[in-house]
């Protein structure tokens, strides 16, 4: 039997591994790029342009051809072709060098937005994908869902009104609930409000918000706001954000100071020998996880205390309705309590 030089075989092995890695690595691999390119036909481009125009029209910004080529990551040639096709099909029209949506274009754009937000809702309720992935996955899925499929999806989810970031989902007939609230960075010191929306774009900022563990629907009170930083209290914790980051959080100001519930805190901060009453579950606790916690008795009004601390800190066992149930820190932080 012939012997094979070990160095040669190792070299062959590693070059094969590297080759496979470059071909198949997630999102940047050649295989995925090819797949994406193959798919990103005119339909995707058109839909992306429509969406961009829609979002800018909502915030009253005008877009020129240059803006489009800047903001969309497509080959310029393809973009120009798509634009002329869209004008031809009466989806958009030109007005003072910038593009506007026609009635038809607006309808189409709303359908894409609806598909996108419903898919995010689906991912948050029925799958285990991480928050960070929802947006990107919905960006791809929105082009694949037909109107019929979108409606079925909506039905499956019980026709939800808001997506998991707090954005309104357009209805079948194209109605959109108006956006409310102001940016967190614009609030003055002492203002009390409730977080109603966390923007998921751009990704860098969104990841920072997620890392801070700021929860949607939580009540906040601003204690400091200047050019350097925005500081606020929420659910018994203190948060410090850069103004740019705070700018991506929308808050509904609560005029009535009396509703302020300063002594609400998270179950994760309960200490041994303290007793607390559960106020409710945070909106951030979703899907199967939420139902499980409710089944286990983590419902409003239940009395809870720490039963056992873990030698490795996480999880913690809580005594609730006569039984010791262990929860991880990220679950306990989504259960709101008030100390007795």
């Amino acid at each position: 039997m012939s012997t094979i030089n070990p160095v040669v075989s190792l070299l062959v092995f590693f070059s094969l591994t590297i080759l496979l890695y470059y071909v198949f690595r997630p999102t940047k691999g050649i295989y995925f790029l090819l797949k994406k390119n193959y798919k990103s036909k005119t339909k995707t481009i058109i839909e992306d342009i429509l969406k961009l125009l829609y979002h800018n029209q909502v915030s009253n910004k005008n877009l020129t051809t240059n803006d489009l080529t800047d903001k969309l990551n497509y080959n310029n040639q393809l973009l120009i072709e798509s634009i002329s096709k869209m004008i031809e099909n009466e989806l958009i029209y030109m007005e003072n060098d910038s593009f506007r949506l026609t009635e038809l274009g607006n309808e189409y754009a709303l359908q894409i937005v609806r598909a996108h937000r419903l898919w995010e809702k689906f991912l948050s309720e029925k799958t285990g994908f991480d928050k960070k992935e929802w947006h990107e996955r919905a960006e791809r899925k929105e082009h694949e869902l037909s109107v019929d499929e979108t409606n079925k999806l909506s039905e499956l989810l019980g026709d939800p009104k808001y997506d998991p970031h707090g954005d309104p989902i357009p209805t079948k007939t194209g109605k959109v609930a108006p956006k409310k609230g102001v940016s967190l960075s614009e609030l003055s010191v002492g203002a009390v409000g409730r977080i109603i929306h966390i923007e998921d774009e751009p990704e860098i900022i969104y990841k920072q918000i997620l890392a801070e563990k700021i929860h949607l629907d939580s009540q906040i009170r601003v204690v400091e706001n200047n050019r350097m930083r925005v500081v606020f209290h929420s659910e018994g914790e203190k948060f410090v954000l850069a103004p740019v980051v705070a700018g991506n959080i929308t808050v509904l100001v609560l005029e009535n100071q009396a509703v302020s519930e300063e002594n609400i805190m998270r179950l994760s901060s309960l200490q041994e020998n303290e007793v607390a009453k559960i106020i409710g579950l945070s909106k951030e606790c979703r899907g199967e996880n939420r139902r499980r916690l409710l089944d286990l008795g983590f419902v409003r009004g239940a009395i809870v205390e720490v039963d056992l601390r873990n030698p490795l800190k996480d999880p913690t066992a809580f005594l609730i309705k006569g039984t010791s149930i262990a929860l991880r820190e990220n679950q306990a932080s989504k259960i709101l309590i008030k100390k007795e």
Partner: peptide, 8 residues
């Protein structure tokens, strides 16, 4: 089971 309301 703890409940019959979920979907496990």
């Amino acid at each position: 089971t703890y409940s019959l309301l979920s979907t496990s």
